[in-house]
């Protein structure tokens, strides 16, 4: 039992971190009022670019940097469409996913299935052998620690800084924010780019940290689960950590249970994220709480002349 729990906890970040990073990126974008469906595409860009640059440059850290830029670059296109030209956010988001899938398939083609050495893994010896939590706390890739620190920083920044306040104001009521002197388009574009960058980092986690290879289609729906996670977290980065642990934990438990030869309802477990998201939506609707909930202007393009 202890072996199972230790192994399960140690493998948790591999499943939870990509979901968490992407979800927090989406939260930034959506708190600024831009509904962003493109996570699956940004993550593919990050995963592919991370692998290709690591293979050619030979240094995984350069790969991580390139993955962040690649995710942000695709998000830049989305920002031009939705923030500058005020295109429909849902349609533009879906187009972004398709674009990300296509670009990565074409550019990544010569690098398919080529393995490389990923990021170093922390190994402080005795500490890592602590029962249960040793592996979880001390035997992870450096990017897991950096990613968690980044998420906490963004959580604090969103709730406690002036920039965070302005960003939230833009998502709640862009007209009022505009009157108060906030540059609505600048904040929205910045939030969308940050979203792309975080999703790119999430993609890099998949290819550079977890599997050391690029395979077409390897994001495999994680961008959509991150989108569900945003709703589960009620647009709060701190709650997204909890959600990522639950969503990722279920994924991580499955192979561990199967390796023990346990009878597991495989298909039921893989629907768990969606069931939980529906449950949270229902509970939120029943509770009628508005705190930290959906930004009021989410998905609406802001045009100054159209003041209500």
């Amino acid at each position: 039992m202890e072996l199972f729990l230790t192994g399960w906890l140690t493998s948790l970040p591999a499943f939870a971190m990509p979901l968490l990073l992407a979800a927090v990126g989406l939260i930034l974008s959506e708190r600024a009022g831009v509904l962003n469906m493109g996570a699956e595409g940004y993550m593919a860009m990050g995963a592919m670019t991370g692998a290709v640059v690591t293979l050619t440059a030979g240094n995984p850290w350069i790969g991580v940097g390139a993955a962040i830029l690649a995710g942000a670059a695709l998000a830049g296109l989305f920002a031009i469409a939705t923030v500058v030209f005020r295109a429909d956010q849902i349609l533009a988001g879906l187009a972004t996913v398709a674009l990300g899938g296509g670009i990565t398939a074409v550019i990544g083609r010569p690098y398919l299935h080529k393995t490389f050495t990923g990021l170093p893994r922390l190994d402080p010896g005795a500490l890592a052998d602590l029962p249960l939590v040793g592996g979880l706390l001390f035997r992870q890739d450096l990017l897991a620690y950096l990613g968690l620190a980044l998420v906490l920083l963004l959580w604090w920044g969103l709730r406690a800084t002036r920039t965070g306040l302005k960003l939230r104001a833009v998502g709640e009521d862009p007209a009022t924010a505009d009157v108060a002197g906030v540059d609505v388009q600048l904040y929205q574009a910045g939030a969308v780019l940050a979203c792309g960058a975080l999703c790119g980092l999430a993609g890099a986690y998949l290819s550079i940290v977890s599997s050391n290879v690029w395979v077409e289609g390897m994001v495999n729906g994680r961008g959509w689960i991150a989108l569900a996670l945003v709703i589960f977290a009620r647009w709060n980065p701190a709650r997204a950590i909890l959600g990522a642990v639950i969503f990722g934990g279920a994924d991580a438990a499955l192979p561990r249970l199967l390796a023990l030869g346990a009878q597991v309802p495989t298909y039921l477990l893989s629907t768990l994220p969606y069931l939980l998201t529906i449950l949270v939506l229902v509970l939120a609707a029943l509770g009628g709480r508005r705190k930290d909930a959906e930004p009021r202007s989410l998905g609406l393009a802001y045009i100054r002349q159209d003041r209500r």
Binding site: A14, P18, N220
Partner: peptide, 9 residues
């Protein structure tokens, strides 16, 4: 096609 899952399995 899910190298992350396959590695963890």
């Amino acid at each position: 096609w899910d190298p992350v899952k396959e590695g963890q399995v």
